[in-house]
Design a protein around this nucleic acid. Structure first.
Lengths: 135, 135
DNA sequence: TCCATGCGTTACCTCCAGGTAACCGGCAGA
DNA sequence: TCTGCCGGTTACCTGGAGGTAACGCATGGA
């Protein structure tokens, strides 16, 4: 009775299909936030190498110290990134993708390809729509 | 000089790689919002058939009239959905995926598969992290 | 006369992502 | 003694996402 469409579960009723709540929704929401993908991407540049906090920060223009800390904390919590703390002075902290983390971006590849192929069309559609009044 | 990693452009400097601003970021952000994917999904159930506003609303539990209108408006603006208005009484409005819209969810398939395979692991990682104190 | 219908729009409120800025801690070097 | 270094944390503020509720409108049916 429960089927799925593109990975999303739904049920058929006489009144039509109804999408059922889907736990993995939150994962996409996390990805959609402002910095997460950027942090994952820079860690993925050389997955074998751990990066220091400051290296990540330098690699991502405009990210603030606070937002980088928060983003990394969330990724660590999700098991996508590991944090290594070295109690030196001044302190050194290194971040690295976990095995699971290393598989994430490649899985997204199909969709980033779609975006690459379509975002100009989207941009044009927006301009057409906005120009059409309907302000 | 400009390379890409998983579709994301960056440049190499002596101080290390720097990710460059990436327009398509916004597309992912849109997808990450609360309702967009659900609306796309229900329209994709039978891509050949247009759905009425009320059919979509009934198919998505808990979505409010306002949020459905806003979400559809954005999708229309992005050229992913078309709106057909019939000046009957009471009015009838039908929504349908555009050709571009029809290609989006399949492109996302690889990633939804990754989520399906990994979200339990993510859930467990979160619980471990939270239980570990660091409140 | 009154109401239900279908698709909005408007007004209003709350919450949180994200930004800015200052401070901390402990040691090294001037 | 003062300053800089690194990685964080804290306090504070703002904008916008998203929720709730009510109103609008044209007509057909009771």
């Amino acid at each position: 009775m429960e089927k799925t469409i593109h990975g999303r579960p739904y049920i058929e009723t006489k009144k039509g299909p109804i999408l059922t709540p889907c736990a993995p929704n939150g994962v996409l929401a996390r990805l959609g936030d402002k910095w997460t993908i950027l942090v994952m991407s820079i860690l993925a540049l050389d997955p074998a190498r751990a990066l220091r906090f400051s290296e990540i920060k330098n690699g991502i223009p405009d990210i603030s110290q606070r937002m980088l800390t928060l983003t990394l904390r969330n990724l660590e919590r999700d098991g996508l990134v590991t944090r290594h703390y070295f109690a030196e002075v001044p302190p050194r902290v290194e971040y690295e993708l976990t095995p699971m983390g290393k598989t994430m971006l490649p899985a997204l590849e199909g969709f980033t390809g779609w975006i690459r192929d379509n975002w100009q069309a989207i941009e044009q559609a927006r301009q057409r729509f906005d120009r059409a009044g309907r302000s």
